[in-house]
């Protein structure tokens, strides 16, 4: 392998890159479970009318998500796998020094959760930031930065096909209520709430676009509109901008509350990350 660029951006030395090639080659094999299998294995009763945004997409985009060799989100999963093994921060520790990849199975499907010695929930990106601060003594990664999204995508990928399973933690209840309140609150110049579109009018067409039920089944997602991977926060911001509401800053607790509510609402639905969405 050879990488040459006039504006070089590769922080890895050649031996480091070589070392991780075999693991990378295994990626498609390790993560071969298809979404169809995930659907079949999910615990969904016949009366469950919830739909993933996946089900509202055309066959071409479903195929793009299902095929790991075609899903652009897998490029970030691969980057995440490399970062996972790369020492970072003053402690010079890699994620892999504390966690096995197998331990990550199911983790993304249960976040946001309240970490030890805390009373507030954090989402998966927040958990990664916390690990960086406390264990790696590394600087925070910028919201929506490629490294943060890639690490999140790599961890989230380990939960593909598993049912979304928020923790059974009573302390989450007030945050879920707060999230629901935001979800139902009219906001912005257009005076709309999340619920007006995604509960009351899901399945109808907003312009030519089918309004999904807003289940966060595939985050981080590769959104064609972004031409990049992005977080649930970024997607929520898009909706806020759409209704001409002031978006919360990325650090706002409001997003985590919304995420707690939305993941609870999607409980039991199969996790798809990295999802592909229009």
């Amino acid at each position: 392998m050879k990488v040459s660029r006039s504006k070089s951006q590769s922080p890895l030395t050649l031996p480091e890159r070589m070392r991780w090639r075999p693991a990378l080659a295994l990626l498609p094999v390790v993560f071969a479970a298809s979404f169809a299998m995930a659907q079949a294995g999910a615990d969904k009763s016949a009366s469950d009318t919830r739909r993933s945004g996946y089900q509202d997409m055309g066959a071409a985009l479903q195929k793009m998500q299902d095929d790991d060799t075609a899903n652009p989100g897998m490029l970030y999963v691969q980057l995440g796998e490399q970062l996972w093994a790369k020492p970072a921060g003053a402690a010079s520790k890699a994620c892999a020094d504390c966690h096995s990849v197998a331990d990550m199975k199911g983790v993304a499907a249960r976040y946001p959760a309240i970490p030890e010695n805390s009373d507030r929930p954090i989402d998966l990106e927040g958990r990664i930031q916390l690990c960086r601060a406390s264990h790696q003594q590394a600087e925070r990664l910028a919201p929506e930065s490629r490294d943060l999204l890639s690490l999140a995508a790599f961890v989230a990928r380990q939960s593909r096909g598993l049912p979304i399973a928020p923790p059974d933690d009573a302390r989450l209840a007030p945050f879920r209520s707060e999230g629901e309140a935001i979800y139902r609150r009219r906001q912005g110049q257009l005076n709309l709430s999340c619920a007006i579109c995604h509960d009351d009018n899901a399945g109808k067409k907003l312009a030519g676009v089918t309004i999904p039920q807003a289940h966060p089944t595939g985050y981080p997602i590769y959104r064609l509109e972004w031409q990049a991977l992005g977080s649930l926060k970024r997607r929520l911001r898009n909706c806020l901008v759409g209704i001409r509401a002031e978006a919360y800053p990325y650090e706002a607790v409001d997003y985590v509350a919304l995420e707690v509510f939305l993941m609870g609402r999607a409980k039991g639905m199969p996790f798809e990350a990295p999802g592909v969405r229009p």
Binding site: G188, L190, L192
Partner: peptide, 24 residues
């Protein structure tokens, strides 16, 4: 109603700065 108020600036929550105080 889901119809946005096209000529109202009051009683709205968290209007984006660019649209604050403006009607649609």
């Amino acid at each position: 109603t889901i119809m946005p108020p096209y000529y109202r600036t009051t009683g709205l929550v968290r209007v984006a700065r660019a649209f604050e105080g403006k009607t649609i």
